[in-house]
Design a protein around this nucleic acid. Structure first.
Lengths: 193, 193
DNA sequence: CGCCGAGTTGAACTGAATCAAGAAACGTGG
DNA sequence: CCACGTTTCTTGATTCAGTTCAACTCGGCG
């Protein structure tokens, strides 16, 4: 249940066996079946989640009822609504399993304790958040500088298997277009190649 | 020269006088006159910069020659192209002073040393980057869910003095529209109120 | 004085959204 | 294992927000 977390930690930081054993006690293992929710908007996001296995999505629903995906969370990724997690305010996001998933949950107070008692975790999360910030800045500039087609292409370049694992309308709501537009885009791409 | 940095640090973390004195030796003070560049695309971003006084912008120029502003850096903010700073790769961003500015620069190796020797700095930057990530995620979702008008309104709500300090075409390239569109937007707003 | 960057306004154009309808794929219960 | 309803995907017609191109104004500054 902790294999992938251990792998990811060891890739990034150096921690002792005792520290890892201590860390393990801070997490709550949870299995979440496909289509079940880990967080629903209106509720506070009380956990940060590590994906041991499976696939999550975090998304917002706007006033017109359209979904907008902030993040897909695959194996080895962390998923949460950071703002709600840190402040305790109600979240505007939903987190849903797109596949049967095995998760490791950690509460804010356990997380704080972990960062205080094991400085290597402070570093681990700093680097993690740093990389996430870089990726999010890229995606933001992408929405301003590139067309929907280029954004689609770079998504499948970065995550080739995503087309097999998530329905197209969700890919559309990740790159920021309607499903109709993505459908037309794809038929043009298919014709052109 | 270090007043504002000291203030910001003390707001967020607890460090001893010795630690702060040590930190001060790691920074390179620099004055940068309006319209001068701190970073030009193609060069690696070798510094992370704290703005003691003045105003910076970081922006990209796309293939059509249009500018897209990633960030305004006002007093108390940090500015860099994180990716280039961390990897040493050439940057795709420019950083320019919009007002005569007083800056504190720190190189990657000094920064690494600071984080290693003073754990409170590791925490400080983790929190800083975390807040930046939350803000960037908000802005990203904003580009997908809101109109140019709403984005303009929330910008001036968050930074009321920005309209006095930066020309309108730069505000346009921050919210992601052309200057013409912003101009029309504003005349509608003025008429409606 | 003349020039240049900044801002405004108008007209034509365009990429994507919206509205609408149908086809294909999927899974759930009988 | 099939039947039926739901979800997903596609295709077409129309609309719309924002871009592009172009011309003109205004204010500062060498």
């Amino acid at each position: 249940m902790f294999e992938f977390l251990e792998k990811k930690l060891k890739e990034n930081i150096h921690i002792s066996r005792e520290e890892f054993e201590f860390a393990k006690t801070m997490f709550i293992p949870k299995k979440l079946r496909k289509k079940r929710f880990l967080l629903q908007d209106g509720d506070p996001c009380i956990y940060t989640t590590f994906v041991e296995k499976g696939l999550l999505r975090s998304f917002r629903v706007d006033d017109k009822g359209n979904e907008h995906i902030l993040q897909f969370g695959m194996q080895g990724w962390w998923v949460a609504d950071l703002y709600s997690f840190l402040t305790g305010e109600p979240s505007e996001y939903n987190i849903e399993a797109l596949e049967d998933s095995e998760l490791l949950l950690i509460t804010k107070s356990s997380w704080d304790q972990l960062l205080n008692e094991v400085p290597a975790f402070e570093r681990y999360f700093r680097v993690l958040i740093q990389n996430n910030l870089i990726a999010t800045q890229r995606r933001l500039m992408g929405t301003m500088t590139t067309t929907a087609e280029e954004r689609y292409n770079s998504l499948i370049r970065d995550f080739p298997d995503i087309t097999q694992r998530v329905p197209q309308h969700m890919i559309a709501s990740y790159i920021g277009v309607t499903r109709e537009t993505l459908s037309r885009l794809r038929s043009q791409l298919a014709a052109g190649s």
